[in-house]
Structures are given as C-alpha cells and as structure tokens.
Design a protein around this nucleic acid. Structure first.
Lengths: 205, 205
DNA sequence: CCATTATAATAGTGATCCCTATTAAATTAT
DNA sequence: ATAATTTAATAGGGATCACTATTATAATGG
C-alpha cells in the first residue's frame, strides 16, 4: 500500500496515466494528424500549458502514448507467442487476441499501430517513423518465433521465416483496416482461420 | 483528330486531368488530412480561386481524384479478374498487378485506396466513407469472381467466398501498408505466393 | 474597336493549428 | 502567518487551415 506521497506545491489536477489513456483513445480513433491539441486538452479537462508541462509536445505525447499502450497491451500477446504451445496453435491464439483488440466494444476500431500514420504531411515524417519502427519490430518478433520453430523441428528447415512473418503481418494489418471499416470479431476470426491454412509443409490438392 | 475547340474567354492555365494527376500524387503520398490546399495549389501552379472554380472544394477534389484514378488504373485489373483464366491463376496475376502498383519507382508507395483515411477527424467522416465504400466494392468484386468460380466448378460448392474475398482483401491492404513502410516489389510477391497457398480444397499435411 | 465571355490573380476572411509568456492558485515547511 | 514550492489558468502569438469577394486579364464575336 504505497501512500501517494504528498509533496508541497499545488496538487496535479490530472494523473499522468489517465491523461495518456485519454490521449491514446483520441489518437487511436482519429490518428495523429486528425487529433488536435485542442481535442486533447478538452478531453483531458486541462488547459494547454498543463498538457505541455506534462508531456512536452504533441509529438512527444504521441510517443509516450505508444510506449504506454504497448507496455499495457503487448505483454499478454508476447507470452502467447513465446509459450511452449505448438507454433501453429500459438500463432492462432496470438492472431485471435489481436482480432479481439481490433473489435473491443467501447474502444476505437482496429489497431493503434498496425495501420497508423501510413500517409502523412512531410512535417510529420518523424511520427511516421515511430509507428513504422513498431510494425517492423513486431514482424521481427514473429520471425524470431518462426526461426525458433524451425530450430525445434516444428517447421521445415528451408522455411522462409521472413516471408512467413510478413505474411501474417499483412493479415494483422488487413484485419486492422477492415476493423476500421466496421468488420466484426467473427468475420476477422474467419479470416484468421483461412490465413492459418497458408502454412509450410502442406501438400497442394 | 479533334481540335481543342477554342472557346472565347481567357484560356485555362491548367488542364483538368493534369490537375487531377498532380492532386492524386499528393493525396496518395500524404493522405487527405496531410495534404493542404496550399500544397495542392502550389504543386499545380495555380492560385486558390482557380482550384475552387475547377474542383469545388478540397473534399470534392478528392472525390474527383478517386474517380479519375480508379477509371485509369482499375480497368486492367478487372480484365484480369474477369478473364477466362483459371481462377487461381487470374487471382495471382491480379495480386501481382496490385503489388506492382504498390511499388512503382516514381510514384508514392502503397495504394491510394486500400489504406487511405482509416483514421480521421470527425469533420472528415464523409471522406472516410468514400474510401471505405471503394474498399468494400473491390472486395465484393473479388467475391463475385469467386462465386463465379464456384458456379463453374473451379471451387468447391461449399466455399465461403465472402471470407475468401476478405482474406485476399486483407493481403491487399497489408501489402499497401508494407509498401508504405518501404517493402520492395519482390518482397510483396513472395507474400502473395504464400497467400495463394491458402486455397479451398487443399489437404492439410 | 468595343462588347462579351471566360478564366486568373490579388488580397484577403475567420477559424483553427501548435505552442508559450505571464500570472494566479494551492499546497507544505517554517 | 509567511515563505517557498509546485502546478494551473489566463490570454494570446505567429502560422497555417480551407475558402472567397473582388478585380484584372485574355481570349472571341460583332
């Protein structure tokens, strides 16, 4: 039970994590360029200088939102992936978890990262690099898991794990786009079930 | 040989189709919200009132750009799809053509429609509906082709053609996203080759 | 030449963009 | 109480947003 140590000075009116959560929802729903600082301060119930003293700038806030959201959402998925379940089964659960994230009832549709800032004004190139780097990292994580499966004999030795990772990465990105367009959870999972039939070591009909 | 009929009045300084082509490249690269009317007028070499007299508004210009680009780019793809080639082969050529479009040397990366306006400010909801409708139409086109293949006995009678269409739609969207992130043509085609192994009537290993 | 017609250029509009200099308020320490 | 400290609120800055009222220009028709 840690007592929130009362320091001297005027008390903060907004908890940092609450602020990040509010910002996450706005950026998630409207994108970086579609969310104004006025939107953010209004939703957080603060004035502009408070936002800037807490988070630095709009771009820095977005960076913190991504960190915050990834730490909170990604650990469960990585556990699934890194488990000792058969690779095909682990992948299925991993994708199902992402489909659930794309279609949460009281949250924006799609994924905050998979389809974020693909197009942008030149002035926002650095923000685009942030999300692109996160996408690349998540595909490298998938590839590393497939490499492990090859080592452990679960996948054929000659498997192109990079292409396999980018294929399921494309599925993840496509699911996010379709969720943004209104696709329901069941539809995404049918899509996953079909995607899981593209798997090395299968014979053609 | 039709002579460009000289009408009276001051001559236009910008051909309409040239203007649409310039606008297409900007919207394609930067997205709707990332492209300002100042960007557009500067690139076209015109002043704001000329843009508004030619195209009506930024939103109306975007609509015309989509019409213009689709008419120009989509007919070849639809011919491939509607040809009498075996369905699996036609689908492969169709996807290859899209991969080529995603990675043209002197054009923006990715697809103008597949991953456009997924997130947006509330005020741009009508623009988002435009691109979403185009995506839905293109998936319905795929589904119709798969339905035909079922009728013609190329696909099993019980094939879930809707899911099949949305699966390859997801591949198209994922390719666009990855092209935006810098994926080359060959990488996209490896992805396609793998996606084409997810096909009804195959036996699991 | 002059009138008519069609389009372009000038010069802005109010609103909103991201951000901040300055001042006010709310707490603890003495 | 008063001082010290920390945060919030007021008020607005310069730039850019999408857009337009007005004026100027360049062609043809008579």
């Amino acid at each position: 039970m840690e007592q929130p140590v009362r320091k001297r000075g005027r008390p903060r009116v907004l908890d940092r994590d609450v602020g990040l959560d509010i910002a996450a929802r706005l950026f998630w729903e409207r994108g970086y360029e579609g969310t104004s600082t006025a939107d953010l301060t209004k939703a957080m119930g603060i004035n502009p200088p408070t936002l800037y003293s807490m988070f630095g700038s709009k771009e820095e806030l977005y960076r913190q939102v991504l960190d915050f959201s990834i730490v909170r959402e990604n650990s469960r998925r990585l556990e699934i992936l890194r488990s000792n379940l058969p690779i095909h089964e682990a992948l299925g659960l991993y994708l199902y978890d992402i489909a659930d994230g794309d279609t949460q009832p009281d949250k924006p549709r799609g994924c905050m990262v998979s389809t974020a800032v693909l197009q942008h004004a030149e002035e926002n190139a650095s923000v685009a690099r942030m999300t692109a780097a996160l996408r690349e990292t998540s595909m490298q994580t998938l590839k590393a898991r497939f490499d492990r499966a090859v080592e452990e004999g679960e996948l054929p030795a000659q498997t192109d794990t990079d292409t396999l990772a980018r294929f399921y990465g494309a599925i993840i990105q496509g699911m996010s786009a379709q969720a943004c367009d209104g696709a329901c959870n069941a539809r995404l999972k049918r899509l996953i079930d079909l995607a899981l039939t593209a798997w090395p070591g299968k014979r053609s009909a």
